[in-house]
Design a protein around this nucleic acid. Structure first.
Lengths: 195, 195, 195, 195
DNA sequence: AATGAATGAGGGTTCATTCAT
DNA sequence: AATGAATGAACCCTCATTCAT
């Protein structure tokens, strides 16, 4: 039951923050959107920042769960990478509001004041990096600086999501989100397969 | 003389905003850093937002100037792309504070309230896209969705810059900034050269 | 409870505004006078202007209530007019601070930014005008331009209130407020009775 | 020549203050309207308040000059009063902007901070009062409290001017200014002639 | 005399957070 | 657990005034 209310607030915060950005999303507005009193928000989160962190951590959790489930599966590592990418785009397509927050706030605040965001921003590239390391070990791709390539792939995804998610035209939005994964995968895979 | 003071304020704002982020960078702090009164800031900028825009537009101007100078040169298009990339990394290495602002604030604010930022965020990928279009026309690379690839390259750069620029360790910072351009270029070029 | 606090702020604002005028009456000073925090003032009024409007509307309400109660009574219309005038002077004598505000701020601000004040400034002369119209219909007074005469009476009252209320000498103040109604009424009635 | 510039500023101030009110009429705006630098304004007026005072004193001067010229003439006192009234309405009709300022700012500021305004607000009723005293001595009108009646007449005029001068409709404005003097004079004269 | 950039105190308003109910 | 009125520090911005040129 408690978890329900916390979830209620998380969803309200996503709505408000995606529309207004973190700073303009006041706790009053979030509470109103959630249909609870401000005080109630503070029963579940110690600070406004914690709500944003909670949002990021939840998204990180989902992706980690998916990543972990992939780890157990038996398939080429590159296929896993493809699936991870696709999963991210699907999630964003399902809930663009979250996508807006992820791309907008992921670098906003000063460094370590939001450990949850740092975890997300470092965690996702880390997943990619690990898969790349495996793929190199497998001989599926050529050796490369996987930290850099992992970051690059992460950044590429973010930029496309950002463009899509803030597109005025909903058609453009879904086209981008649909076309991007394949284009990206082809680009990176080909760039990594080596001679 | 006028330009000097505006430039003074721009530099102070870069310092303060890179350390604290846009929202925590108060006009008072910027003025103090610049060694002028708050009122003076408002003699050169109508709103705090305008300072941030001015910073972005100045960086856009530099890159556009470089891009335009490349356009006149006689060399393979891919070489031009390499140079543009390298120029960006060099600039960031020279002035990481600006880099911090560029990556941190580029998606922060709600859409069109900062037209200057939008110009930057759309302009840079546009430069890349145009070069890619040329390269395809030249046969230097395979056909691809240049909008997506342009965005991807832009995002990849941003992510790496972000990691570098917020790295605690200055050694890690410069290593990233030095290694990244080549790694990135190799990745993208190979990914684009086609069979 | 809520009404109490709003009323508390209204009274504090009357005190401060009557002493300093609207512009010099800062929200901080009003809050301090009321013994609440500034923020509390803004829980009851959206803007400083709204406080002033609220004061005017409250005074208009009182006078309208009295005017309406007169309407139901059975007496010569001129007697009603006398009573309305006297009521106004009595109110001002009871609370000169409000009187100061009414005369000082009633024309200050630019037009329709203070609809509450406009209502007052147009409403009171309207009451007078209606009574005059009735009195003409009754044959109690000669025909005349009741809009102009209504305004004139309103203005005459304001000027006297103004002089009284800003008089250094409290004796002079009460003498004026006591003597004025009869003098005014005699003047206007005689001026209106016709041959 | 100096006087010309001071006059230039006075006229600019009238324009700006009549449109925006005293507080919103910034010295910058006045200077711009006058086509001079702010500094220049301060060569002719020590404070912003002095400009407003200067405007009031100039209007007082005109009326005093007219009043003095009437004093020398040989005619019934009541006729002089009529002429004074009419002169005021004519002046306002010629320059409604000044009228706006006269009625709007005459009670705004806290008491003795604007001696010039006080002089105006007390001076004009004084002129009227003196004429009434004379008229009583002459037997032209019945005895009355001339301070009160003087104030009343002054206030009546102000209220009508205020209504006229802020009327949206220019036709209504001129109708009021034309009709008012006669109506007012008739009202007051009849009210004062006694049995 | 004229200029206008520089000044900085001060004002209105916001909003994260608390706590008594 | 839920409430929401109260708080007050802090922020952006204005604008009267000055003074070096």
């Amino acid at each position: 039951m408690i978890q329900d209310k916390k979830e209620l607030i998380r969803l309200a915060a996503i709505k408000v923050m995606s529309e207004l950005g973190f700073y303009a999303a006041t706790t009053d507005k979030i509470a109103k959107e959630a249909g609870v009193a401000v005080g109630t928000v503070y029963n579940y989160f110690r600070q406004k920042e914690e709500i944003l962190e909670h949002i990021f951590l939840e998204e990180l959790r989902k992706r980690k769960a998916y990543y972990d489930s992939l780890a157990e599966q038996d398939m080429p590592v590159l296929a896993k990478l493809k699936k991870l990418l696709r999963m991210h785009f699907v999630e964003v397509a399902k809930n663009p509001a979250v996508g807006q927050i992820l791309v907008r706030e992921c670098r906003t605040p000063s460094g370590n004041q939001f450990p949850g965001i740092t975890q997300f921003v470092q965690g996702i590239p880390k997943f990619i990096q690990r898969l790349l390391d495996e793929a190199i070990a497998n001989g599926e791709i050529r050796p490369c600086n996987t930290e850099i390539v992992g970051l690059a792939l992460f950044g590429a995804v973010e930029a496309i999501v950002s463009r899509a998610v803030f597109a005025e035209d909903p058609v453009e939005q879904s086209e981008l989100l649909v076309a991007a994964p394949d284009e990206l995968i082809e680009l990176f895979i080909m760039g990594l397969e080596g001679e």
